[in-house]
Simulated scan of single mutants.
Amino acid sequence: MKIPTICRYCGGTITLANPREVFGDGVTHLGLEGEYIYLCRTCNARVGCHRGSTRPLGKVANEVLRLKRRETHQIFDAFWQSHCMSRTEAYHWLGQQMGLSDKKAHIGSFEMDQCQQVIDLCRQNHRKAA
């Protein structure tokens, strides 16, 4: 994933930051002590990093998109767990369904419409399996 430098929402500068700037003392509760995020201090758009690294988890998102991605993850995770898939198998299935490579099939990179597509796919395929 490319390291973000310019905010796609406001054009501000995105910098590597301590999550404490956003979450305060909640970093300990969230398990983010010693971790990093990429943050636009102008509009609060951000993305977390893979544990123990400065590699972004996805694309920078504003509050609305972060909430949609969180909802999508909850539905997708429940879907693949209930279908006895591994996480890797689930993302492979998702990539096939969406016409994306395994490398591009990650919720952390998705936009609103792609998140909704994942939710719809999980709901449709859950009904088929039931």
Rank of each mutant, 00 (worst) to 15 (best):
M1I: 03
L39F: 13
V118P: 00
I119L: 00
G11K: 00
L94R: 07
R70W: 00
Y36I: 11
L30F: 15
D102T: 12
Y38N: 06
W93E: 09
G95A: 14
I37T: 11
H92P: 03
V22K: 09
F76E: 09
Y91M: 08
D120K: 02
E21Q: 15
L32Q: 12
R127V: 15
G34D: 11
S109K: 07
A90D: 08
Q117K: 11
T88W: 12
I6Y: 01
R20H: 13
L39H: 14
I75Y: 06
D77I: 10
Q116E: 08
N125G: 04
G34T: 05
H92Q: 15
A105S: 13
C122V: 08
C10S: 04
V22Y: 10
K2P: 11
C10F: 01
E63C: 02
Q74G: 15
K128L: 14
S53A: 06
L16C: 09
C10L: 02
N18V: 06
R41W: 06
R127M: 13
I6R: 08
V22D: 03
T88D: 10
T28E: 15
Y91G: 07
M1V: 04
L39V: 14
Q96C: 14
G12A: 08
R55T: 14
I75A: 04
Q116Y: 02
N62A: 01
G52N: 05
R87L: 05
Y38D: 11
I3K: 14
T72K: 00
E111C: 01
Q114H: 03
E63I: 04
F23H: 12
A17L: 03
G108H: 02
G34E: 11
G31N: 04
A105Y: 02
D113L: 00
Q74C: 14
C40N: 06
A78Q: 13
D77P: 10
C49D: 02
Q124L: 09
S86A: 08
E21H: 13
N62S: 02
S53R: 02
A90I: 13
L32D: 08
L67Q: 12
G26H: 14
C10D: 01
S101V: 10
V22H: 05
T15L: 11
L94C: 10
C40L: 09
L67K: 13
Q97S: 12
S101W: 09
G108T: 05
H126E: 12
K59P: 01
E89S: 10
R70A: 04
L121R: 02
M85A: 08
V64I: 12
T28M: 06
G48C: 08
L94K: 07
G11Q: 01
K128Y: 10
T15A: 15
S109V: 03
C7T: 11
G11C: 01
K103S: 09
D113S: 00
L65G: 00
G12N: 03
L30T: 07
R127K: 15
H50K: 12
G99Q: 11
F110S: 02
